[in-house]
């Protein structure tokens, strides 16, 4: 069974007061997430990430298409009892304490009093809010609110967890704490679907990612596959070469980054590296290292988004 299945999901909004016109926020999205996967949903602002999550959480209705969570339609209440959701920049009733908030959520899930109390205490300890459990949420810092949000999303011990920008607005320590929590959930075998701008977190936590731009899915797959597919390039670090040699290397290199005592020379394949080595050797230089170029998720993200923008520009012209 799939944790999440999205088929041809499209959402159009109508904007304008007098002259109404449709704006497509999500365009024909297809996505599948398996059970136990940790899935990163990436994209710049306005990419359609939050729209997708809101459709999945029944906060907005799709124009066309459908989605299933745990094999059930989105309005299935039994399925709802098996998932958790943390909205972007969560805001909860600030007159409640964290303990009251969790008890309230437990009642909505229909948990009995004893179980609700036990889970509340366990979760407060787990997210590090036990000491502040009886403080009103209006006195919480942003990081504490985020942790209270995570706790309310976990009150029903969900099988699938949807997190919308769980690290946004947090300081490095807060980010680390939330990241560790998500990693622990993943290690427990929970399915975690989360959108994020913080690519290093996604890279550290996710098995698979999807990259969105302007409502469209532009890339998805296993992180290792996506990044591996672009690792043909090699980078040689060379020292003891002069300006003239660097100019000579330009012919074979795709990129040369000068360093204090030499340069980082990037080439397409093994064949070019042999030419580079012979030139460096002839010039009396020294080879320090040769390594395959591993594209970071950030590189991939930036490249995909800019390529996508170029294609769109060409299509428009």
């Amino acid at each position: 069974m799939l944790a999440l299945e999205i088929n041809n999901l499209t959402k159009d909004y109508t904007v304008g007061f007098w002259k109404k016109r449709p704006v497509r926020a999500l365009n024909d999205l297809n996505l599948q997430v398996g059970m136990g996967e940790s899935f990163g949903f990436l994209g710049p602002n306005g990419a359609g990430k939050t729209t997708t999550l809101k459709i999945l959480m029944r906060l907005i209705y799709p124009t066309t298409g459908e989605a299933k969570i745990l094999g059930c339609p989105l309005d299935d209440m039994q399925m709802r009892a098996r998932i958790g959701y943390l909205p972007e920049q969560p805001y909860f009733y600030d007159y409640l304490t964290a303990r009251e908030l969790l008890n309230y959520c437990a009642k909505i899930f229909g948990l009995n009093k004893a179980e609700a109390l036990k889970r509340t205490d366990d979760l407060l300890k787990r997210v590090g809010l036990f000491e502040a459990a009886d403080k009103q949420l209006r006195k919480y810092s942003k990081g504490m609110l985020q942790r209270a949000g995570l706790a309310q999303a976990l009150i029903n011990d969900p099988e699938v967890l949807f997190l919308d920008e769980p690290m946004s607005g947090l300081d490095p320590l807060g980010r680390r704490e939330v990241r560790d929590l998500i990693a622990a959930l993943r290690d427990q075998g929970k399915t975690v679907f989360f959108s994020s701008h913080v690519l290093s977190d996604v890279e550290a936590l996710c098995d698979r990612v999807a990259i969105m731009n302007k409502g469209c899915l532009i890339e998805s797959g296993k992180l290792s596959d996506i990044l591996k597919s672009r690792t043909n390039e090699l980078e040689a670090v060379v020292t003891g070469i002069d300006e003239a040699t660097l100019n000579e290397l330009q012919v074979f290199a795709t990129q040369i980054v000068p360093a204090p005592e030499g340069a980082h020379v990037r080439v397409q394949s093994d064949k070019e590296i042999e030419y580079v080595l012979s030139i460096v050797h002839r010039a009396g230089g020294r080879l320090v290292s040769v390594n395959p170029v591993r594209e970071s998720l950030e590189d991939l993200f930036v490249r995909e988004i800019s390529e996508n923008a170029k294609v769109a520009k060409q299509a428009a012209s």
């Binding site: 959480m57 209440m77 709802r80 009892a81 943390l86 909205p87 909505i108």
Partner: peptide, 14 residues
């Protein structure tokens, strides 16, 4: 307005 409804409607609540 305060978006408190977001986490609520995601739960098993009509």
């Amino acid at each position: 307005d305060k978006r408190t409804i977001y986490s609520l409607l995601a739960k098993p609540l009509h």
